[in-house]
Design a protein around this nucleic acid. Structure first.
Lengths: 151, 151
DNA sequence: CAATACGTTTAGTATTGCTTAAACGTATTG
DNA sequence: CAATACGTTTAAGCAATACTAAACGTATTG
């Protein structure tokens, strides 16, 4: 690794494993970790070299995060390379991604509610409650995040 | 499947795939779906038969969900079998599980913050912001959920 | 106490999908 | 226009793990 610091090593490793267990790939998590501790935007080569992964993995990983809005491209003038960095509000982005997952789940819940007949009242009630809680969260969470801006 | 209803089929299938993509197993997601649309608590045999999965899978899946607090055991008197059902506040449980994930991420962020030196001020600022946002969310979200109870 | 019911563990198989090297396409440079 | 720089795609290898059948342990029944 570019940095031989063992603490940073451990950080990157744990971060990678966390995302590995959460549906993403290990290298994907490592990329996020790497950008978290980088002062400057990083090129694909920077990332690949820094994490000892192939450039192909770096390319794949950055694209996936970029599509989900968790990292962004930066261009330096007079430089053909593409650089990546975290958006300034990374915590907000992650929260948003979390709500997005919830949203998918709620859509499935609605699918289920429509699939079961009127002969399953309590199951229907559970699914309805589910939708209600999410709607409320989706409304409130942005407000909560906004509270932090005011400080 | 016990129920031949194609809509329910689709629901279970999609639900299973959602969890498959989110780190859990497909059968694990299917179990959750099955309990969501069940009026009565379900035994391992009910689940295995209903989903056409092995009893071993049903046993594994239910234990995992139970450990994370997303389903609970029920006993019927005069019956040796163990039955499973969703807790009454399933949406709350899921939200809590979500915050729990966030909490792990924040612990990692703190690890990273301690790993980098004072020579990386902006990276440090990002990690600090991350921790701050989470602390606020963790404080507020339970309040938000409580708002729903009052209706 | 034999037979059954029930849940868990284990070992093996199959599947999934991550990772990489190499090939490729395209733009840029001298 | 040859050579280089850069990012993406592809094909293949490999590691992780989900899933199952079968064996197992234990409690319960008649």
């Amino acid at each position: 690794m570019g940095t031989a610091d063992p603490d940073i090593q451990v950080f990157i490793d744990r971060f990678g494993r966390f995302f590995e267990e959460t549906g993403a790939s290990r290298s994907g998590g490592q990329i996020l970790a790497w950008l978290l501790i980088s002062e400057e935007p990083q090129s694909l080569d920077d990332i690949a070299a820094g994490l000892h992964i192939s450039k192909a993995s770096a390319s794949l990983g950055t694209r996936q995060w970029e599509q989900s809005g968790l990292i962004e491209r930066v261009h330096k003038r007079g430089d053909r390379k593409v650089y990546y960095r975290l958006p300034s509000n990374i915590a907000h982005s992650l929260t948003q991604a979390s709500l997005q997952k919830f949203h998918q789940l709620v859509e499935l819940a609605e699918l289920g509610r429509d699939a079961i007949g009127a002969d399953r009242p309590s199951a229907r009630a559970v699914l309805d409650q589910f939708v209600r809680v999410y709607r409320h969260l989706n409304e409130r969470v942005p407000e909560i995040l906004a509270e932090l801006e005011e400080e």
